[in-house]
Simulated scan of single mutants.
Amino acid sequence: MEEINYKDYCVTSISGRYITYDHIDEFLNSLPVTFKTEVVGRSVRGEAIKSVVFGNGPKRILMWSQMHGNESTTTKAVLDLFNFMNQDSMEASKIWNACTIKIIPILNPDGARDFTRINANEIDLNRDAQNLSQPESKVLKKVYEDFTPGFCYNLHDQRTIFNVGTTHKPATVSFLAPAFDEDRNNSPSRKLSMQLIAAMNSKLQEEIPGQVGRYDDGFNANCVGDAFQMKGTPTILFEAGHYYNDYDRDVTRVYIFKALVKSLLTIRDNEITDYTVDQYLSIPENG
């Protein structure tokens, strides 16, 4: 694998915590036609919810960010990923040929504008997977059903208060393979989620040793990750957290980007089974 220099791909025009489609549309519109951008639905207030599809391979990956409007670190990392995939590199070319990737950069545009977790109807979209009471929830469900992904990435931010286990190190990135039942058993899809997280953790331990945590896996069928895991789709929760003095989360975005690339390379190369459930379980829980 060739070394990937993040600085070559960072979208420096997008930074800080407050990010709406106003901030990212110019970049999205600058992507070549091989990145297919479309409006997949509308928010409560009628703002367009967009998706970007790229790649032409059989391995299908669906990602969505800013389900909670004030959680924008992963959105920045996704833009960096677009930039990476738009460059002439062997690694990007191989991912392009092996995978088809669909990304919703901002699922909750009203919440993004208000810089709040909830949508304009004051509903937490990540507790609406069963009721599907909100237009944004229905958009995600339809995209999921139409795209039929082999993997789902649920991209979030977590609060600065979290540390790794009993250490004083911040949980700069945390992961979760969501449960699919009350007893938190391991289904085939959940095991794959765990193995893919173990792959990403192996990369991040080289970069930020001791700063990767494991998010609480209490089961809630109303959460989207749990709901998709119930349907048999390997789903991963990403939680972008704190790095020292990085209150704009522009350092954390680097590690989310590197985790995303590592995951895609692992899927591309059929290397998920090189990693184990025990390696996932060895990641300390968030403190």
Results as ranks from 00 to 15, higher is better:
residue 40 V to G: 02
residue 43 S to F: 03
residue 65 S to Y: 02
residue 58 P to E: 13
residue 43 S to W: 00
residue 46 G to C: 13
residue 54 F to H: 07
residue 67 M to E: 12
residue 43 S to T: 11
residue 68 H to L: 06
residue 43 S to E: 07
residue 65 S to L: 08
residue 42 R to C: 06
residue 68 H to D: 06
residue 62 L to F: 10
residue 60 R to P: 03
residue 55 G to H: 09
residue 62 L to V: 00
residue 40 V to T: 02
residue 38 E to H: 05
residue 68 H to F: 08
residue 59 K to W: 00
residue 32 P to R: 09
residue 45 R to Y: 09
residue 31 L to T: 03
residue 30 S to C: 05
residue 56 N to V: 03
residue 37 T to K: 15
residue 41 G to N: 09
residue 58 P to R: 12
residue 42 R to W: 07
residue 41 G to Q: 08
residue 60 R to E: 03
residue 51 S to D: 08
residue 46 G to H: 12
residue 39 V to M: 11
residue 46 G to E: 14
residue 55 G to P: 10
residue 60 R to I: 01
residue 37 T to A: 14
residue 63 M to W: 04
residue 35 F to Q: 04
residue 44 V to S: 14
residue 63 M to T: 00
residue 53 V to L: 15
residue 41 G to V: 05
residue 44 V to C: 15
residue 36 K to F: 02
residue 50 K to W: 07
residue 57 G to W: 00
residue 37 T to P: 02
residue 34 T to C: 10
residue 60 R to T: 00
residue 59 K to Y: 03
residue 67 M to K: 11
residue 53 V to R: 12
residue 66 Q to Y: 01
residue 68 H to C: 10
residue 53 V to A: 12
residue 29 N to R: 02
residue 30 S to V: 03
residue 64 W to R: 05
residue 40 V to F: 00
residue 53 V to K: 10
residue 28 L to H: 03
residue 65 S to D: 10
residue 54 F to A: 05
residue 67 M to F: 11
residue 34 T to F: 06
residue 42 R to F: 12
residue 31 L to V: 04
residue 29 N to K: 02
residue 37 T to L: 14
residue 36 K to T: 04
residue 45 R to G: 15
residue 47 E to F: 10
residue 44 V to R: 12
residue 58 P to G: 04
residue 61 I to H: 07
residue 31 L to I: 02
residue 28 L to D: 06
residue 40 V to L: 09
residue 50 K to Q: 15
residue 28 L to T: 01
residue 59 K to C: 01
residue 30 S to M: 02
residue 56 N to Q: 09
residue 64 W to Y: 14
residue 50 K to N: 11
residue 33 V to R: 07
residue 43 S to Q: 08
residue 59 K to T: 00
residue 63 M to A: 15
residue 62 L to A: 07
residue 30 S to Q: 06
residue 43 S to C: 14
residue 48 A to S: 13
residue 65 S to P: 05
residue 66 Q to M: 14
residue 62 L to Q: 04
residue 37 T to H: 05
residue 36 K to L: 11
residue 56 N to C: 07
